[in-house]
């Protein structure tokens, strides 16, 4: 009895500081976001706040800028997710097979990951510039100068490619960890059966990596949906809103236009979306584990 009481007090003493901060800066903001999303709260005039029901939510889907931002974000996701997931898997497979300089390769492909979004964005603004190094290199192989981030058509893919360049090393390391965790006995058995390299990949590597593939796929997707700093620094969302993203819209609506009600509704939709993706991921990986347990 006494030790129960001690445990409660000790538990709260240890967990308390974190709990206070969590409440102030996570629970409360989350709760307020949901509440504000049903109001027309305007931060410059908080006294005139009314309950407006679902009006913000219906307004969002009529809002042209939000729709643009949504489709831009989808385009980012459609470029970044396949390129980054497959790129990371490919690099990990190659590096795992390499015999020398393994360490160098890991470092080389990981360096952009530790660089900041602002640094990478500033660097690639120079690289993408009309008279920049990339256009000079293209000229060497006979391709005419491209506008890259200065045209509405090319800005989004240019930023997407840069983001893949920066991020791919992270998932590569995750895949390498997964590859090293595969039991080598599986490959030895396959060698005895004279299985080809492709068969080994298809029947051992891929099934063993499947939960990790799902994890990487979903985390890259969520990451791509969170795109904001790169367009903010490089293009300010332009040209003509071609790189304006969902999170950028939430940010501008909230902290530039001060329409907290509207921004909150956008944030709620965004979080629900992220939660759905996370649930899909856990269902897909759970399914896999259940099967592999059944086999044992």
């Amino acid at each position: 009895m006494k030790s129960n009481k001690i445990n409660s007090i000790m538990g709260m003493a240890f967990f308390g500081p974190a709990l206070v901060l969590l409440t102030l800066f996570l629970f409360l903001p989350m709760l307020l976001t949901v509440i504000f999303s049903f109001t027309d709260f305007f931060a410059l005039n908080p006294d005139l706040t009314h309950f407006v029901g679902l009006k913000n939510y219906s307004d969002i889907f009529k809002d042209e800028l939000f729709t643009t931002a949504f489709w831009n974000t989808v385009k980012f996701v459609l470029i970044i997710v396949p390129a980054q997931t497959l790129g990371a898997l490919g690099l990990a497979l190659l590096i795992n097979k390499a015999t020398v300089c393994k360490k160098y390769f890991k470092v080389a492909f990981f360096i952009p990951v530790v660089m900041s979004l602002a640094v990478v964005s500033n660097l690639w603004m120079q690289i993408y510039s009309p008279e920049g190094i990339l256009n000079t290199m293209l000229a060497q192989i006979g391709i005419e100068a491209q506008p890259f981030i200065y045209s509405a058509e090319q800005a989004l893919p240019s930023i997407a490619i840069m983001s893949v360049w920066q991020g791919v090393g992270y998932q590569m390391i995750i895949f390498l960890g997964g590859l090293q965790a595969i039991n080598p006995a599986l490959y030895e058995a396959a060698e005895m059966d004279h299985a080809s390299a492709w068969q080994q990949f298809k029947d051992i590597t891929l099934p063993e990596l499947k939960p990790l593939c799902v994890f990487v796929f979903i985390t890259v997707t969520i990451g791509a949906f969170r795109m904001i700093v790169q367009p903010m620094v490089m293009t300010g969302g332009g040209p003509s809103h071609s790189t304006y993203t969902l999170v950028y819209d939430i940010y501008e609506t909230g902290t530039v236009n001060w329409e907290i009600g509207l921004a909150s509704a956008m944030a709620v939709i965004f979080v629900i979306f992220v939660i759905i993706l996370t649930i899909i991921q856990s269902v897909l990986t759970k399914d896999k584990e259940a099967k592999s347990n059944a086999k044992k």
């Binding site: 939430i250 940010y251 992220v274």
Partner: peptide, 10 residues
């Protein structure tokens, strides 16, 4: 799971 960008305004 909650992306920090969604509560940054509040």
């Amino acid at each position: 799971i909650v992306p920090s960008e969604t509560i940054i305004t509040i």
